[in-house]
Computed example of a mutant assay.
Amino acid sequence: MDNINDFRSELLKEDLYNINAKKYAEKIKNIGKVVIWGSGNGGQLVYNFLKKFDALENIKYYADNSKVKWGTKKNSLLVISPEEVVQEVKESSHICIILASQYLADIKKQLLSLGIEENIIDIKGFGLAKDYWTFKERTPYEIINSHMNDYEKVYSYLSDQRSKKVYLGILNSKISLDNEYLEGVADSEEDQYFDKDIIHLNENEVFCDCGSYNGDTLETFITLSDNKYKKYIAIEADKDIYGELNKRVEDNGYKNVETYNIACWNRKKVLKFQSAQTAGHVTENGDFSVQADTLNNILKDEEVSFLKMDIEGAEEMALKGASRVVGEIKPILAICLYHSLKDYYKLPLIIKNLNFEYKLFIRHYTDMVDTETVCYAIPNSRI
């Protein structure tokens, strides 16, 4: 079966966005007691979703692993400890625990270890609520169908069956608001950016880390490379996080590391930036200004061999500003796709347009949650 027919036959053909949202809310209404595990942003997303569908009546508590939150209230609901959740389960015959965190796989393991039965642990609500609030104007089904040829083209470019399974699984989970399509899709989060089946580091790597955060990827790279590399270029737009990055470099005595407090873009200009820890991003409503420039300029004297991007939705602009780097130098690329559904077709097609030689692979690194999806582009010389 050819790629396009395979793609069309496996892609969901019904818009299930509103159908499954209502069905889930009705299910929650019929449960005697509900605990939302996670009192942060994830818990708020779930709460807001259930409120929209008038399904708050049976929500009794938040739960959290953070001790400082125990005994506090959120949305007038008491935040309880894991031990108190166990007690609630013992006393209730009809209870559900909605895991409202991208770390739901780890939390599920924790709850199972506490003796809580799997059938009362809900791993669907968080992803459903997150995507429900993401797509306000057009459903994922409508977006995908309006760009069907582009998604098909990306699918046809993917170089292995694993990539195709990941790609279809994520698109179907979006269309259906059901993370059952992510079952078996994730690889170990420890392999992110350095997937052993795809990436083979050498001693001459010049690694450019766009969205370097506080140096977490730097630390992983140095460990995996056994401290044998040529240069590491860390680029971080958030001025406070940039300070943390430099402190980590200094404290650990890392050598041959250059850091830049700059945003990657398609031209040189000043942008507004919103600080948000791991999700800081360029936005017109940002709380401070940051200088932006192209990677063609920033890396003008560098023979970059590996280029990674996780820059919260600015990947399209940054890739367009890296036309020379990608087209002529041809580094390995590890580009995050998950910030926008449209990025799942836009970014791979930009890469192929800049350099058709690249072989494309897609891998995913959060179990049952559609975040941390990476498109790898490998030049023939590094296959």
Rank of each mutant, 00 (worst) to 15 (best):
S212Q: 05
L347M: 11
I350G: 06
N5A: 15
V35W: 08
K228R: 13
D370E: 14
K272D: 12
F207T: 07
K330H: 05
T373W: 12
E205I: 07
K13W: 10
S225I: 07
I198A: 07
R363C: 01
G243N: 15
Y365H: 09
E117M: 07
Q192E: 14
C96K: 04
T278R: 13
I144V: 05
A129V: 08
D195H: 14
Y47V: 04
N214K: 14
V282G: 09
D64E: 07
S212K: 09
P82N: 04
I222H: 08
I311G: 01
S113D: 14
K136W: 02
K29C: 05
E190N: 12
D191S: 10
G211A: 06
I351V: 13
D293N: 12
M148K: 15
Y157V: 13
I241H: 01
K228L: 10
N41A: 15
G43P: 05
G243C: 14
L307H: 04
K230P: 05
L333A: 10
G40R: 08
S305E: 09
L307T: 04
K300I: 02
S101A: 02
K231F: 03
Y213N: 09
E316A: 10
I80Y: 03
N214I: 15
A129M: 01
G327C: 01
D6M: 10
E14I: 06
P348K: 02
I241L: 05
D240A: 01
T72P: 01
S323Q: 15
F207Y: 11
C96N: 10
Q110A: 09
G280W: 00
T134H: 12
K13Y: 10
E236G: 04
K272R: 13
E180M: 11
V206N: 01
N172E: 09
K268L: 14
L218D: 00
T371K: 14
S188I: 03
S275N: 02
I199T: 09
A292S: 05
N204K: 09
K346N: 13
N18W: 06
E244R: 08
L99T: 03
H281G: 04
E180Y: 13
N246K: 06
E284C: 15
I262Q: 03
Y47H: 14
V86A: 14
D191V: 00
V290D: 01
N18K: 11
D122P: 04
D367K: 14
K228F: 01
N145C: 11
P331T: 03
K164I: 09
A377P: 02
D310C: 13
K23A: 09
R248P: 07
K67N: 08
Y181L: 10
K359S: 08
E26N: 15
Q110L: 12
Y254A: 00
E372R: 04
K73N: 10
S76L: 11
V369N: 12
C208L: 15
I121R: 00
G125A: 05
E372S: 03
I332F: 07
L45G: 06
P348C: 05
D191L: 08
Y345W: 13
K230E: 06
L354T: 12
E357D: 12
I116D: 11
G32E: 03
V206M: 03
I351T: 11
E236M: 06
N296P: 08
F221C: 12
R8C: 12
E142G: 03
K23T: 07
K27G: 14
Y157D: 02
G38K: 00
D2H: 00
N355S: 13
N296D: 15
L78P: 02
D287P: 07
A318I: 00
N297Q: 07
N355D: 12
G38P: 01
G43F: 09
N30V: 01
N172L: 11
